[in-house]
Design a protein around this nucleic acid. Structure first.
Lengths: 139, 139
DNA sequence: CTAAACTTTAACCTTAAGGTTAAGGTCAAG
DNA sequence: CTTGACCTTAACCTTAAGGTTAAAGTTTAG
C-alpha cells in the first residue's frame, strides 16, 4: 500500500513519451501531477499514471486531446453514458468520411498512373497535361 | 490573341479562392504573377491561370503544396516521367496505409460502442474502464 | 471629386501535438 | 564536493495552408 511517487522523467520513460509531452498535457489541463515536492519537482502517483494510461489509449483510438478532455469532463460530472456514445458515433462518422475520400483519391491516382508511360519526359506526360488543362478533371 | 491581364482579386474570384491564398502561393514560390503594374499591383496572365489550374487540381488530388513544387521542378527540368510516377506510387502507398489505419480504428470504436449501455453513468461505462485499465487494449 | 472597393506590405494568428532552447536550480553517485 | 543527470520556467519553433489585421496607396463608379 506504499504510495509510490514518480518524477516526470521516470513517468516519461515508463510510458515511452517525453517530459515535454507530460508538461504539455499539464498545460492544456489534461493531466496534473498529484503535487510538487519541496524542490518544485512534479510528483506523479499511481492514479496519475492510470489517468495517463487512459489518455494514451484514447489518443491512440483516434481521439484528439481536446476530445479526451471532454471525456474526462463527462466522467467527472457524472454525465450519462449517452454523451460518450455520441462522441464515439461522431468519430465513426468522420472516419467513414475520411475513408471514402481516400478511396476516391486512390481511384483518381491509379487512373492517372495508367495513362502515363515511363519513358516520356515529365513535361509531355498525360498526367501533367491532364492536370494542367482540364479544370474539372479532378474533383 | 489579346493577352488578357487579371488582378489578384479577379483571379481569386474566378477560382473560388482568396487573394491571401494567391499571395501565399507566391511567397512559397509556387505561383508568381507574370509582372507588376505601375502601381505595384500583381498582374496575372493566361499562362499563370493555367499554372493555377494545375496547382488546384493537383492539390485536390491529395498532393501537398511542397509536392506540387517538386512536380513543377521535374517538369521544368525535363526530368523523366518516372519521377512523376514514383511520386504517385508513394502517394498511393501512404493513402493505403491511412485507410488501413482508419479501418482498424473503426473496428475498435464499434467494439467499444457495443460493450456500452446508454443508461449507465459515464464513470461506470465499460468503455471508460477498458480504456483506463488495460494498457494494451488499444494499439 | 469623393467614397467605395481594391491592392500593397509586414507581421501576427490558427490547429494539433508537441519539440527546442536558454538560463538556471536540484539531486545522486563517486 | 563536484560532476553529471535531472528538473524548473518562459518563450519560441515546427507542419500545412492559409486567415487576420493594420496602415497605407490605387482605382473606379457615381
Amino acid at each position: 500500500m506504499s504510495t509510490t511517487h514518480y518524477t516526470i522523467g521516470t513517468v516519461a520513460k515508463r510510458y515511452g513519451i517525453t517530459t515535454v509531452t507530460l508538461r504539455h498535457y499539464q498545460k492544456i489541463g489534461l493531466l496534473h501531477p498529484s503535487f510538487r515536492g519541496e524542490s518544485g519537482y512534479r510528483v506523479y502517483k499511481e492514479e496519475d499514471l492510470s489517468r495517463l494510461h487512459f489518455i494514451l489509449n484514447t489518443k491512440n483510438a483516434g481521439f484528439t486531446l481536446e476530445e479526451i478532455k471532454a471525456l474526462f469532463f463527462m466522467i467527472d460530472n457524472g454525465e450519462p453514458n449517452k454523451a460518450v456514445k455520441n462522441l464515439i458515433h461522431e468519430k465513426l462518422k468522420s472516419i467513414q468520411e475520411k475513408i471514402l475520400h481516400l478511396q476516391k483519391l486512390t481511384i483518381l491516382l491509379e487512373d492517372l498512373d495508367n495513362v502515363c508511360h515511363k519513358q516520356m519526359a515529365a513535361r509531355d506526360c498525360p498526367i501533367i497535361k491532364r492536370l494542367r488543362v482540364n479544370p474539372s478533371a479532378i474533383s
